[in-house]
Design a protein around this nucleic acid. Structure first.
Lengths: 110, 110
DNA sequence: CTAACCTACAACCAAATGGTTGTAGATAAA
DNA sequence: TTTATCTACAACCATTTGGTTGTAGGTTAG
């Protein structure tokens, strides 16, 4: 299974998107249910425009998608971004496991 | 197995730390080998102080530790931070799986 | 001892971030 | 048609971020 290499700026955007608790909450919500942008905005103690910006950040990071429905814009979770982020952290975990294996080898030899 | 709940600001710091390619590179390097701060600084086209700041960001996020050895400060990878970040993304993955399961149920009923 | 090296930290700067208000265009409801 | 709602986007502001240079203190090497 080949996973396409992610550009560094793509990873920057992904983790940057996760680095805010409001955005993490939005991701959780829109994965479970359907929300318009104003539906989301009603949940937080900040302006509509602020929430709109958060959604834009998430969209650029492939963590959500928007779909126009009437006068509303429906925000939905996008598995792509999450998978990519998990992919990177899995690579790092692999490096740790290899390191652990090497240390075990050294102990076995010694 | 109980995993202690992470504070939101702790998560902010973690993902913020990952949101920079130089810092991601540092994490990889110090997981595999041993580097002093100046040893790391030699690798990048930026000043010593800039790298020092990156290391500080990683340290605050529990992604690396520093240990004084003589006049050097040895930077090592810290599995803690990585595990916590992976823990969060795993939670999000769970939410996706539950969603998929619900959708399958709905299809089965209908 | 002196010189070189490694680190820490302050001060500064430009750009990005996270928030605000205000304006304007579509769409839906009365 | 008029009015209300939803969205987009610009302009602005304060704070943070990612970089710089410079200074100072501790440790090693000659």
């Amino acid at each position: 299974m080949v996973v396409d290499k992610l550009s560094e700026t793509e990873l920057d955007r992904l983790f940057q998107a996760f680095a805010d608790s409001t955005r993490r909450d939005i991701v959780r919500r829109v994965t479970v249910g359907e929300y318009s942008v104003s539906g989301l905005a009603a949940l937080y103690a900040m302006s509509f425009a602020a929430v709109q910006k958060h959604v834009a950040v998430l969209e650029r990071a492939s963590l959500v998608t928007k779909e126009k429905r009437g006068r509303e814009q429906i925000v939905r979770g996008n598995h792509d971004g999450l998978q990519k982020a998990r992919g990177l952290l899995d690579e790092y975990e692999q490096i740790w496991r290899q390191r652990a294996a090497r240390m075990a080898d050294i102990l076995a030899e010694g």
